[in-house]
């Protein structure tokens, strides 16, 4: 009969009206500034650079300015200038470092490609999303100093992933040390040319 479909629809909306008062599934709104969202661990926003220590972020950046991320970045929002000199990295090896590392977050599309291609686990995705600025050009162009965040922060936002990365880095370091030790032992035993040098990073 004409009108039954209309009444059925009215019943559904009435059910939702009443349900919104007692059923949380029918009122899923999160009142944002008061209630902060529970971000999933995988949530990604803009990249940051991992440094080993919080005290000396510029001295302990993992980045070795290899420029792979700069080349792979789809919107090309990363700009890197290599340093002229070298300084020891976290493992104590002499490495060049980024003299300039800039990410234009007004261009960045948070795709995570830079993180995936980085062989040194030195660039990771941040979770800070309240990043409005009052100035359009300078404030959105993040420099090396603004991008550097300590490894402990990385552990805080992506605990599982960071633990795995640390394990992998420790294993690499161990392997490098073992190899160095073996090489030294071999050198002291018989002066033969050293074995192939250890590769820089973990497998991609």
């Amino acid at each position: 009969m004409l009108g039954t479909g209309l009444l059925q629809g009215l019943a559904v909306t009435a059910k939702n009206l009443v349900g919104s008062f007692h059923d949380p599934a029918r009122l899923p709104t999160l009142e944002y500034p008061e209630v902060q969202p529970q971000l999933p661990e995988a949530y990604r926003n803009f990249p940051f650079l991992v440094s080993e220590s919080a005290e000396d972020p510029m001295g302990t950046l993992r980045c070795v300015a290899c420029q792979i991320c700069e080349k792979e970045c789809p919107p090309q929002c990363i700009y890197i200038e290599k340093s002229k000199d070298k300084k020891p990295d976290a493992a104590g090896k002499q490495q060049i470092f980024p003299a300039v590392f800039v990410i234009d977050t007004s261009v960045c599309m948070s795709c995570q490609i830079c993180v995936e291609v980085c062989p040194f686990e030195s660039i990771k995705m941040d979770q800070v999303f309240a990043i409005a600025t009052t100035e359009r050009f300078g404030s959105l162009l993040l420099t090396r100093e603004q991008l550097a965040k300590p490894n402990s922060y990385y552990h805080q936002i992506h605990p599982t992933e960071a633990a795995e990365v640390d394990r992998r880095l420790a294993a690499d370091r161990q392997a490098a040390e073992d190899k160095a030790k073996a090489a030294a032992a071999a050198k002291s035993a018989a002066p033969t040319p050293p074995a192939k040098p250890a590769t820089g990073g973990p497998a991609a």
Partner: peptide
Amino acid sequence: KILGRIQNRPGPN
């Protein structure tokens, strides 16, 4: 408010 509640949102508050 009512439209909001029917649409599962709180409406202006």
